[in-house]
Design a binder for these strands. Structure first.
Lengths: 190, 190
DNA sequence: GTCTATAACATGATAGAC
DNA sequence: GTCTATCATGTTATAGAC
């Protein structure tokens, strides 16, 4: 196993543990034990516990911004854009559950520099999402519900999908992809 | 100041710190410093850091179950019941922001016994909420969206209200009480 | 009720041998 | 690349003086 794979392995294992117990509750000894090595050996592959956290959180945050950037310029209705975004959240949740959980729970433990970077990516994502809603409402494709409440309500549900995805035996990915957009966009009442 | 008030003060201060930095990142020295006393003195009022956390988390969890128990037997439409629950979440979020945040972020750090208790309260709440949706769908008051997805989507948003409530300058409590039920129940699309 | 002092241990990280 | 050994610091918690 070369150095990159080993590093990747450490980050994946860390994400799993951080998700389960929280960043602060996971010691470098815990992480090393899970990898089957000693704590000191970790430092041949990573430079600090902080670096691992930043690697996890920022990779997900960048992925989300990357996706919304491909959606925004498309010549499709607002509802289609929102559906595409919801589907991307579902897919990423399925593929990178631990990373998603880690981003949501532990970003607060990033050092000042990375926290600022994370929050600016998040702000950028929210601004682009808000703009899609604004245009949709202006074109009367969407109901005129308070825009901040709409942004918050939808993004919160999407961000927290991973919590619920752990119980995925209850519902298939396919059902999720049809019924979650219905819930978030059409609502429960006719 | 008598013993109960002092204890209460410690719990309120702890909730504030736990919310800001996370349970594990707050030491008893931090908490004592914030209270203007020494760490050792805390133990005259509480028996452990764990006990403080349990006190915070369980009080909120019990409040939610208590409220839904008053709503369930009422002779009103499902939509009215859901609106009442949404309003209760909004009110509690406004009154006990730190407690709500602490429950959401730090329940994972409860010891085994209290974690089990918390999860059973949470399960009980979800079951009662699910039943309201089930009846509403059976009576055709609500659309037939996958029930687990509906439960998840709505409760997630309500649980995470505190995150957004910190930016309360953006929207009034009154607007929240009208537009959040609209978003969650009516949806964005006509 | 609060203090000082301290026990007993866990933490992130590093140096240097192999 | 991994190990053992170690460091400096932080942790929860208690004993006993005032």
């Amino acid at each position: 196993m070369n150095k990159n794979n080993r590093r990747e392995d450490i980050v994946l294992t860390a994400a799993k543990l951080f998700r389960k117990k929280g960043y602060n509750a996971v010691s470098m000894r815990d992480l090393a034990a899970e990898m089957g090595i000693k704590a000191a050996s970790l430092y041949n592959h990573i430079s600090s516990k902080q670096e691992i956290l930043a690697s996890i959180v920022l990779s997900v945050a960048k992925d989300f911004v990357g996706h919304i950037d491909t959606v925004v310029p498309q010549p499709i209705a607002s509802i289609e854009k929102l559906t595409s975004i919801i589907h991307h959240h579902i897919e990423l949740t399925a593929e990178q559950t631990d990373f998603l959980a880690c981003m949501n729970n532990d970003w607060i433990h990033l050092d000042e520099e990375n926290k600022t970077l994370y929050l600016s990516l998040r702000k950028e994502y929210e601004a682009k999402f808000r703009e899609i809603l604004r245009v949709g409402m202006a074109k009367n494709e969407l109901k005129n519900i308070h825009i901040e409440i709409s942004v918050f309500g939808i993004l919160t549900t999407l961000r927290t999908l991973y919590v619920w995805y752990a119980k995925k035996d209850v519902v298939s990915l396919k059902t999720l992809k049809t019924d979650l957009p219905r819930l978030l966009l059409d609502g429960l009442i006719d």
